[in-house]
């Protein structure tokens, strides 16, 4: 009777060690493969794609403003989602914006969201209106004057598209492409573009 628990412990320990030694039973994953947990886009897929986008932007765009001595301003005008999945477009742009602003070489305009009359936050113009000279609650020596908002130099936009999922045995292959474009507002020309493919092989 006493031997039973010890035997069980030994078996469990062997199983535990075997689990750690067993090599992965995964399939070949290409270099550009981001995440293999689901055919649907996952947050890690977004982060990996954004990493490639930011790397490309830092290397291929020259961070030039179209006005001398001015930091370049970028206006985000949306990402068209052509997939059946819910991509969080704000997250994609959020990561890009955080990375770009942190460099101190360019910034994003918060005044140009066409869907909100108050800028991206919804409060920008209201805050400026609040500081009007006729508002007796505001110390006019510290008030922001109208006419100081800087125009954007560039427009950032993109689209996401997908291909039909392919099933082969127990493997499902999903493909997406995230495409981002930076366009000059002065000339309308493309100054930078990046297309990031995401291919996922998911075992059912």
């Amino acid at each position: 009777m006493k031997q039973l628990p010890m035997g069980l412990i030994a078996v469990l320990c062997v199983l535990a060690l075997a689990g750690c030694v067993t090599p992965p039973r995964g399939d070949y994953v290409p270099t550009s493969e981001p995440g293999i947990s689901s055919t649907a886009p996952r947050p890690h897929d977004v982060r990996l794609a954004v990493t490639e986008i930011v790397d490309s932007m830092f290397n291929e765009w020259d961070f030039a403003s179209q006005a001398a001595g001015k930091m370049p301003y970028i206006a985000f005008s949306g990402i068209e989602n052509q997939t059946p999945y819910n991509w969080n477009q704000d997250e994609i742009v959020g990561w890009i914006e955080e990375s770009v602003v942190r460099t101190g070489k360019a910034t994003f305009s918060n005044a140009t969201d066409p869907n909100r009359r108050g800028g991206r936050s919804g409060q920008l113009y209201r805050q400026i209106d609040f500081q009007d000279p006729d508002n007796e609650y505001v110390d006019q020596s510290t008030a922001v004057k109208k006419g100081g908002i800087q125009g954007a130099d560039y427009e950032l936009f993109g689209r996401i598209y997908t291909y039909e999922e392919l099933r082969s045995g127990r493997i499902t292959e999903a493909n997406y492409v995230i495409e981002m474009t930076l366009s000059s507002l002065r000339t309308g020309g493309t100054v930078w573009k990046k297309m990031v493919p995401i291919r996922k092989n998911v075992r059912r």
Binding site: H44, E98, R102, T103
Partner: peptide, 27 residues
């Protein structure tokens, strides 16, 4: 700190050479 400092999966083929590249988040 960098938003892009995430783990990237990679597969290096048998008997082949792979290059890992990255760009710093700030100057």
């Amino acid at each position: 700190p960098a938003a892009t400092a995430i783990w990237k999966p990679v597969s290096v083929g048998a008997r082949s050479t792979e290059y890992f590249t990255s760009t710093a988040p700030t100057t």
